[in-house]
Amino acid sequence: MEERERTLWGELTKGFITTNPLLVLMVGLCSSLAISTRVENCIFMGLAVIFVLTCSNVIISLIRNFIPDQVRIPIYIVVIASFVTIVDLTLKTIPAVYERLGVWIPLIVVNCIILARAEGYASSARVSHALMDGLGIGMGYTSVLLIMSVFRELFGTGKIVLFDKTASDLHIKAVPTILIMFPGAFVTYALLSALLQWYQARKKPGVEEEGP
């Protein structure tokens, strides 16, 4: 990222397009592809990631001057793991959701988004910036998650069910079930990624597309 004046608003909004964790940085893919079969899952997962990312960013930014360089990764991991355990125990109080998300909550610990932000950003940023960065990246992650899950649930099952209520129904019988299965996740991501490449090429005409 080029060096420019860092404003709090800029730190918050960059997570949506310019440094979107899923589409541009390509981190945190596992959970997003696996759980985006239902919109409801994504809402809870997004909230969990925003919480863990923001809290760990702030804590790491606060203690950044006391961490010895050689053991920094284990220290980051411990900070992250503590917040993940908080989320894990909290979500257990909603059994229906926990049953579906169960596996992915402990795996937030190794979700590369969080460690990548800790290592690459929070360890050298002011607390206020780290806070905004955590919120912004978390919301960027959540927004992609929501787009993917709306697409997959709507076309893969024919309707969207939110909190036991049918939010939207297409009234079609033959749905491409493959969308909510494993290959569908990859295809959905590929389409989104192609869309982003198209958008970026349009924004800067004349710049030849290069593979990442």
């Binding site: 390509m26 590929a190 490449q197 593979g211 990442p212």
Partner: peptide, 9 residues
């Protein structure tokens, strides 16, 4: 627009 990441997926 499918070159690179999208085609890999």
């Amino acid at each position: 627009f499918f070159r690179g990441v999208p085609i890999a997926f």
